[in-house]
Amino acid sequence: MNLHLFLLCLLLAFGLLSVMARSLLLAGISLAAASVSLTLVLFEMNAPWAGVFELSVCAGLITVLFVSTVSVVRREEQFIAENRLRFYSLPFFLAVFGMAFWLFAEPLTRALVPAVPPQVQINVGTTLWQLRWGDLLGQLCVFVAGALAINAFFRNKNNA
């Protein structure tokens, strides 16, 4: 329980850092760290499959993509004059929101938990392949769509 709380705090801390960091590179790296903490949370919650995916895809792939994009636009992003105070005041607003939400959290969750009969545990593979193959079809479609989209954005220079 305490470990769980600690990991959640770690996740939130890295999330905050990624919003508040002045340098985008640091923000991207702390986003990756947040992903790793989420992975640990998922492992701790007995959800290893989701954890593995989170680690490899979010912490790995997205970080690579993000950091490479940052390196492309790096020269320009410093010219955007942003009011840093707004970012630094996030913890304050977050605290206010957190307190307000805490008041609602318990009755809210209490209202939402019905007496669900204990479910039959089905493992991830069976669920995904036999009950949710529509989602797998969707995943295939999204890969096709993503590949085509990237192609549409970046191949036109060669052909036009």
Partner: peptide, 9 residues
């Protein structure tokens, strides 16, 4: 199992 398969997608 269900939650994880949804989360993976």
């Amino acid at each position: 199992g269900l939650a994880q398969s949804i989360a993976i997608t």
